[in-house]
Design a protein around this nucleic acid. Sequence first.
DNA 1: ATCTATTGTGCGACTAAGTCGCAATTAAGT
DNA 2: ACTTAATTGCGACTTAGTCGCACAATAGAT
Lengths: 122, 122
Amino acid sequence: MFMDIKNIMKNKNMRFTVARTELLEILIKESKPVCYEDVKHRINMDKATFYRNIAKFVDEDIVNSFESSDKKSYFEMKVDSHPHFICNYCHSIKCIDNLGSVVLEGYEVESIILKGKCTLCR
Amino acid sequence: MFMDIKNIMKNKNMRFTVARTELLEILIKESKPVCYEDVKHRINMDKATFYRNIAKFVDEDIVNSFESSDKKSYFEMKVDSHPHFICNYCHSIKCIDNLGSVVLEGYEVESIILKGKCTLCR
DNA sequence: ATCTATTGTGCGACTAAGTCGCAATTAAGT
DNA sequence: ACTTAATTGCGACTTAGTCGCACAATAGAT
Ligand SMILES: [Mn+2]
Ligand SMILES: [Mn+2]
Ligand SMILES: [Zn+2]
Ligand SMILES: [Zn+2]
């Protein structure tokens, strides 16, 4: 795992730093998308450092991002890309595995977000 | 149309005001989701007035809302609800009509957002 | 038509997510 | 070890959206 991150960095021509290692470790371990607040709660990382590294990860296709109904951005590793359900009422985010593939002529669909009322809220 | 808005307000037990009429007229005429900036560009309406009225419309199920990749909220009349495609690169929003219905067991899906690369950006 | 209770509007101050410039630090190749 | 370019952390800044409050407008009663 430690070695994995070092290799990812090498492949993407990015320097192997403590901040990036800690951030990627959280993203890899976590099974849900995380926001800056989530990361800050676990490790000491500056806002700017977080957002700049995340932007680079997104740029390098390592990480996916989307905006939730709580007006914050959430981030997740891009491996095993899947849809997400966001509750408009409690703002919880659920990863969805059992949804047929959605194809849209002319567009390159990178992520799918379903919004509505979750199991607990209805 | 003018009468329609008055009736909507009556049915929802909301006062019939100039601000609400102007805002609903824009939402009804517009064929794309709009943000505050879009509305401000067309009429003189205070931010607080806009967001408070929009929140009420959303609450009363007249209007749908979602967050775009430009970190702004967009709003659209709830009639003829349909999915939207948001480009992660140019942040354009397209209304999608030709997509099969998505059903998710246990959840009440209110809106569907597809994100990715639009026709122009790829 | 006027009066009154209640709701809506506009303004300015505020909040909070995210960005930017800059000086200090660190990674990585020689 | 040395050098150079990339990265980090800090504080200032930007901007979408919220809040409190004084004033204005609505809708119903008289
Ligand atoms: Mn997920
Ligand atoms: Mn639409
Ligand atoms: Zn919920
Ligand atoms: Zn585009």
